[in-house]
């Protein structure tokens, strides 16, 4: 495909520095495509990490050794369950607004790993207050919503950007876009 583009330029007698620029542009375009694909893969990895964390949380982190009394004393008493729940509600509300505003502006920013960190925090706070079994599904639903929305946004964004980059590649190859 790319060779055809180079041959096409040679056949038309394009000067060598133009060909160099074309080659550089093509390399940059291919690098951009790889970057976009990697971006979406990282988002998928974040979702997989959240699933693993949720599986551990489902059993109330039973297979992890529990902290001894001294460490618990250093950590202090956990916040009240109502406070954790209020913060969780505030978190999902602001995360949804943030992702929707990114969708509106067409921004490619994403916070997959950051969201997994926040959700892990909620799991641990509920675990230390002894109320994880009652609130597990709330955190899981919040994570599924935020990561699902973020994944959908990133998928649409990356697909569009990759499509644009492919159009550039097609142009450099001297073919009409979409072929």
């Amino acid at each position: 495909m790319e060779e055809r583009g180079v041959n096409h330029l040679e056949a038309e007698g394009v000067a060598p520095d133009f060909r160099e620029k074309h080659d550089r542009l093509r390399r940059e375009t291919l690098a951009n495509i790889r970057k976009l694909q990697r971006k979406f893969t990282i988002e998928l990895l974040a979702a997989a990490l959240f699933l693993l964390l949720s599986i551990a949380a489902l059993s109330d982190f039973a297979f992890f050794p529990s902290f001894n009394e001294n460490i618990r004393a250093v950590l202090g008493s956990p916040p009240s369950v109502n406070m954790i729940s209020s913060v969780l509600l505030l978190y999902i509300f602001s995360a949804i607004l943030l992702i929707l505003s990114r969708m509106m502006s067409g921004s490619g920013k994403y916070g997959g790993i950051g969201h997994v960190g926040y959700l892990a925090g909620f799991y641990f706070f509920y675990h230390f207050s002894g109320k994880l079994p009652e609130n597990f599904w709330a955190v899981f639903a919040a994570g599924a919503t935020v990561l699902g929305l973020e994944g959908y946004h990133l998928w649409i964004y990356c697909s569009e950007e990759i499509e644009r980059e492919r159009e550039v590649l097609a142009f450099l190859a001297g073919r009409p876009a979409g072929q």
């Binding site: 929707l100 969708m103 609130n135 709330a138 919503t145 699902g148 959908y152 946004h153 649409i156």
Partner: peptide, 30 residues
């Protein structure tokens, strides 16, 4: 999933469904 209809409906559906489910679970637990 890339059609205009899907792009308009899916984010609203996911956001509203997720938020209502989280609110209901937290309210039920309290």
């Amino acid at each position: 999933f890339k059609s205009l209809t899907a792009r308009a409906i899916i984010p609203v559906t996911v956001s509203v469904t997720g938020f209502v489910i989280v609110c209901c679970i937290l309210l039920y637990a309290i």
